[in-house]
Write a protein that binds this DNA or RNA. Structure first.
Length: 440
RNA sequence: GUGGGUGUAGCUCAGUUGGUUAGAGCGCCAGUUUGUGGUAUUGGAGGUCGAGGGUUCGAGCCCCUCCUCCCACCCCA
């Protein structure tokens, strides 16, 4: 037997898990600060719930199988479709409805750098409102999450499906050529304009003059959001459907500006998004330092998705953060705090006879809210101190025969290397105030 | 999924044109110090050389298959 975990899956050892947990807590905090309560759904869904939502390519990536009761089931591919199912299944939910969900999803893709087959998504969604305010709220939350994580080198690239459709029409394409055209448009900055022209020319019904207009707009110098919208306005002036999309993006920009996060938001007409259920605003987030890592946070408006279950459409928009990818990115950028233990204090276990004294002191420390471990067996002091040092535990309480007789403890600071013999109550006060000033 | 690379101790890597018992640094364990960490010093454990076949008197090294990880394409969190 070869002992290893599945390709594309990974273990998080305690040190990493501690770091990832801190990130998750930040995300959760931001979501709740914006008024989003949590939701939990099962990992498995009936296959028919998930089928037909992600396009042909997405569907191939489902982990699908028959369970022991011969039900056709699949692991969830994202958190959005299960949310749509919940909304359709529970009629008692009232609108507008907000919720966040932090949970693993599974995609049978080929693993690569920053890409896993099992990964955590952190989603926030707002259902029941089709407005610039709802759209902008997502971007505001996204920016708040990044800020909470200590990241400011990133770009939220935003676009609108209506603009994409209009660009396709401009290029002379109907709905059938749309997917192929958008895929190329999405890759434009990678393949270059010439290659784009060559490949696009093979699409049936393509209008080369229109393609030039598209290129002219998309490749416009400056790239400032308002300017970009003006360019689009001119290029798509004769397309009434495009106008409402442009107006919407303008409204979103106004609100994002008011919220003070416009510096991160950039209108980018080449952002396409693969998932087939998006209908309005779409966005992806790229880290300036690691553009090749792919999008770390993205989402969009999906007004038709809930209707596929409920029978009537419900406007909806959401944002999804890939915490595992972001974790891997932050690790590469060396932005993660290192610490292998949550404990602040190690209480030495001097001898079997004095174990009770150690337990007594440890309980007092914990009651005072200080994370404490007792060394789990008899060992040389040297070894116990070495353990504390390696684990990054900043304080050690020594209780030997001397201390026990005198009713004191030895409080040792691992950083400073000094030790004082004082009563336990005093030690607790000292540790507590030292930890508080560290936290500041 | 396609193409290219890669795989030797827990980690980073040496290993000469195939030739006896496969090495280093770091880490780990233990002693020097039977009440005190980081330094120093001494010793020790740990590898079916990714897996399985083949060529050869002989394979870590050559050939085939599979697997892993990395890079590009594709797609995305």
């Amino acid at each position: 037997m070869k002992v290893q975990c599945l390709k594309g899956f990974r273990d998080y050892l305690p040190e990493e898990m501690l770091q990832k947990d801190r990130m998750l807590q930040s995300v959760q905090q931001v979501f709740e600060r914006h008024g989003y309560p949590p939701l939990m759904t099962p990992a498995l869904e009936y296959s028919e719930i998930l089928l037909g939502k992600y396009g042909a390519e997405g569907e191939m990536l489902l982990y699908r199988f028959r369970d022991n009761g011969d039900r056709d089931v699949a692991l969830r591919y994202d958190l959005t479709v299960p949310l749509a199912r919940v909304l359709a299944e529970h009629g008692e939910i009232t609108m507008p409805f907000r919720r966040y969900q932090i949970a693993p999803v599974w995609r049978a893709e080929k693993p690569a750098r920053g890409r896993f087959r099992e990964f955590m998504q952190c989603d926030a969604d707002l259902i029941g409102a089709d407005s610039a305010a709802a759209d902008a709220e997502m971007l505001v939350i996204g920016a708040a999450v990044m800020k909470e994580l200590g990241l400011d080198g990133y770009k939220l690239r935003i676009n609108h499906r209506g603009i994409l459709s209009a660009l396709c029409r401009l290029a002379g394409l109907g709905t059938d050529g749309e997917a192929a055209f958008l895929r190329l448009l999405d890759k434009l900055d990678k393949i270059g304009a010439d290659s784009f022209r060559d490949q696009v020319a093979e699409l049936p019904g393509i209008d080369t003059g229109g393609v030039e207009k598209v290129l002219e707009t998309v490749l416009a110098e400056g790239g400032e959001s308002r300017q970009m919208l003006q360019m689009l306005q001119q290029a798509l002036a004769s397309d009434p459907e495009a106008q409402s999309s442009i107006d919407r993006l303008t409204g979103v920009l106004d609100l994002v500006e008011a919220a003070g996060v416009s510096e991160f938001c950039h209108v980018d007409p080449s952002i396409a998004r693969g998932l087939s259920y998006y209908t309005g605003l779409v966005y992806e987030t790229y880290l300036d330092a690691l553009p090749g890592f792919g999008s770390v946070m993205s989402g969009g408006r999906y007004d038709g998705l809930v209707g596929m279950f409920a029978g009537k459409d419900l406007p909806a928009i959401g944002i999804s953060l890939g915490i595992d990818r972001l974790f891997a990115a932050m690790k590469e950028m060396d932005l993660l705090e290192q610490r292998s233990q949550p404990a602040e204090v190690l209480v030495v276990l001097f001898s079997t006879e004095l174990a009770a004294a150690s337990f007594e002191v440890a309980s007092k420390l914990r009651e005072a809210g200080i994370s404490t471990v007792v060394y789990p067996q008899e060992a040389k002091l040297k070894k116990q101190l070495q353990f504390a040092q390696r684990a990054g535990i900043p304080y050690v309480i020594v209780i030997g025969e001397e201390e026990h007789r005198q009713g004191t403890v030895g409080l040792r600071s691992m950083d400073q290397g000094n030790q004082q013999e004082i009563p336990i109550a005093e030690a607790i006060d000292l540790i507590r105030s030292a930890l508080q000033s560290d936290a500041r």
